[in-house]
């Protein structure tokens, strides 16, 4: 006992000796981190500030263009009001929200079923299937863009009908994103399944009574990534929407305000739109945040 105490004291002493230099290095690290976080945060803060800028010029027009100062001279929510009343933004927002919601539900189910199957079942050519999907996954998705466009166009799911088209495309490929979940499921001891099976549980009961409660972080992670993806997709969404406002998602729609005919009149509304896009994703993220890190790292134990 006393020996251990002594050792502990020695360790403590060592630490005490290091204290000054440790403090110094901590200070430096913090300064670097603070500077980095400022650099990272500046664009976001700027967008939020601009979106609340509400001043008028001599002629009484709203100053909607880029200006050289940061802090608005007059604050207000006119940009947000106008964004939702005068523009097609609500349509874009709704489009994206529908896509995100459907994808979030469908993709989560597909991914979890896929991961469970590949983790727990042993069937013929399971290995081949996994290798095949991995090889498919190695091709950049852009390669398929032309042919997917053709197919969607024949199904009349482009232009103003782009929303179901985009959902179909996003969801159709979701089965291949099972890796992280499968990795996580592999870490749950098989003995649990077997015990449940001995007690008479079906395979499905094993999944939803045993595996899913244990895999909560990974379920949350899957939901989050599925919900977030459509908000940022630009290339494919722009191609499918085919310049039709009714079929655009927020990224494509907001981008259409950046050309020379729009930017001066839409700059502050563009910023407001940017803030609005961040809202649902942020809310979801904050609610589910505590599971997120666990989910990302949990599945990484083995593949």
């Amino acid at each position: 006992m006393s020996k251990e105490q002594k050792e502990a004291q020695a360790v403590m002493k060592q630490h005490m000796g290091l204290k000054a230099s440790q403090r110094l290095s901590n200070t430096i690290v913090y300064i670097i981190l603070i500077i980095m976080s400022i650099i990272w945060l500046v664009p976001f803060v700027a967008i939020v500030l601009q979106s609340f800028r509400n001043e008028t010029n001599a002629a009484g027009e709203l100053v909607t263009w880029r200006v050289s100062y940061w802090l608005p001279k007059k604050w207000g929510i006119e940009n947000y009001r106008s964004l939702f009343v005068d523009t097609s933004f609500p349509r874009w927002y709704l489009n994206t929200f529908i896509i995100a919601l459907v994808q979030c539900v469908v993709q989560t189910i597909i991914v979890l079923c896929m991961a469970y199957t590949l983790s727990r079942f042993r069937f013929k050519s399971r290995g081949k299937l996994m290798r095949f999907m991995m090889i498919l996954g190695l091709f950049p998705g852009m390669l398929t863009m032309l042919i997917l466009y053709r197919v969607l166009s024949d199904l009349n799911m482009t232009g103003e009908h782009a929303v179901p088209g985009l959902i179909l495309v996003y969801v159709a490929s979701s089965g291949m994103g099972y890796y992280v979940s499968k990795g996580f499921f592999d870490t749950i001891p098989k003995a649990l399944d077997e015990a449940a099976r001995v007690d008479g549980a079906t395979r499905f009961q094993v999944l939803y009574k045993i595996i899913l409660p244990l895999a909560k972080p990974i379920v949350i992670y899957t939901i989050l990534t599925a919900f977030m993806a459509p908000w940022g997709d630009f290339v494919f969404a722009a191609y499918i929407a085919h310049a039709k406002e009714a079929g655009m998602n927020v990224a494509v729609g907001l981008n259409s305000w950046l050309d020379k005919d729009h930017i001066v009149k839409y700059y502050t509304r563009f910023c407001a739109g940017g803030v609005m896009v961040a809202v649902p994703v942020s809310i979801l993220f904050m609610c589910l945040q505590k599971y997120y890190v666990e989910g990302v790292t949990g599945g990484a134990v083995k593949g």
Binding site: L155, N156, P164
Partner: peptide
């Protein structure tokens, strides 16, 4: 819900097609 959500994605094109 997912099944319900699936439907419009498959139905709509046929309809609007």
């Amino acid at each position: 819900l997912a099944l319900a959500a699936c439907k419009p994605a498959e139905d709509k094109p046929a309809e609007s097609g």
